[in-house]
């Protein structure tokens, strides 16, 4: 047993010595990293750790935080029915808008990439338009208004499909489809632009070699040349898609109201906002954020593993 321990210690020492030697040889790397690391730690890691700490406390922003152990988490999972509704809604939104938005972003970036040069910038601008001004989604308040002045109602009534105006944003049955549509409409954002830029960097000669090697249609070209070359951007886009689809809050709050009818548009982040900024229960809100964070990390892990296999 003791020989084993000795061996282990020796091994660890050796590994540490190798790492130290490597670090010493690459010390200029740390210099490059330092300015970013300092700012990143101060404005991102420190608040994150503090928030996770708050999740184990009762904290109302005014009084000092009081440690209460796992109480927030217990209440959240066992007693908060609204939270469970929020979880259900968030999963529904994330499962649909995450993958579909991701595929649409890539698909349209790819289609636009094939357009003649003179129209490409304009096409990218049009597709990115919903993301260019922060709250463009508020147009949908006019479009889906509940009275006959709402455009969607007006069109449907004009065509004789419905007789009386439909309360699209108040009726629990129609809120979700409308929301999902609006979120998908906004999904050509960060990932989309990264795809556009990434497609531009692929070496032309690979495509030409592909023609010679007998790639017959656009799908083969996509699978054998484009996707493997786009792997780093695909990973980036996936993380952004996860972040955006799980963090949906502004759109439901603006369109369906806050709170929405029967909590039909209540997402986890809306719930978090409710506790953090209307009830000032920051501890509870932090617990929600921490749980959501863990789920997103897990989801990210699964997707990254799947994406590594693309094109191999």
């Amino acid at each position: 047993m003791s020989t084993f321990a000795k061996k282990y210690v020796k091994l660890r020492k050796r590994n540490a010595a190798i790492a130290w030697e490597k670090a010493r040889r690459n010390r200029v790397c740390y210099l490059f990293l330092l300015p970013y690391a300092i700012l990143f730690f101060t404005f991102f890691i420190l608040p994150m750790i503090t928030s996770i700490f708050y999740s184990f406390t009762y904290y109302n922003i005014l009084e000092p935080a009081r440690f209460i152990g796992l109480q927030n988490y217990i209440n959240l999972i066992l007693q908060d029915d609204v939270f469970l509704t929020a979880v259900k809604n968030t999963f529904l939104i994330a499962v649909i808008t995450g993958p579909v938005g991701y595929i649409l972003s890539f698909g349209f970036a790819w289609f636009i990439h094939e357009l003649p040069r003179w129209i490409r910038t304009f096409a990218v601008l049009i597709f990115y338009a919903p993301s260019i001004s922060g709250n463009a989604y508020s147009v949908f308040q006019i479009i889906f208004r509940g009275d006959s002045y709402g455009w969607f109602n007006a069109v449907l009534m004009h065509l004789g499909i419905i007789k009386t105006p439909e309360l699209w944003l108040t009726n629990p049955a129609t809120i979700m489809p409308v929301l999902i549509f609006v979120i998908l409409w906004m999904s050509m954002s960060t990932g989309f632009l990264a795809f556009v830029a990434g497609l531009q960097g692929i070496d032309r000669s690979q495509y030409e070699a592909g023609y010679v090697d007998g790639i017959r249609n656009r799908w083969q070209e996509l699978y054998y040349i484009t996707l493997p070359n786009m792997k780093p951007m695909l990973l980036f886009g996936a993380v952004m898609a996860i972040t955006q689809s799980f963090n949906v809050a502004d759109v439901p709050m603006a369109l369906a109201g806050f709170p929405s009818t029967d909590y039909a548009a209540h997402t986890v982040v809306v719930h978090l906002f409710d506790y953090g900024y209307t009830r000032f229960e920051m501890g509870y809100a932090s617990a929600i954020a921490t749980l959501l964070f863990l789920v997103m990390i897990l989801c990210n892990k699964l997707i990254q593993n799947a994406l590594r296999r693309v094109g191999t």
């Binding site: 994150m48 972040t243 920051m282």
Partner: peptide, 10 residues
């Protein structure tokens, strides 16, 4: 991973 932590609580 830091990208995924919610901004409201931080």
């Amino acid at each position: 991973v830091a990208l995924m932590f919610n901004g409201y609580v931080t």
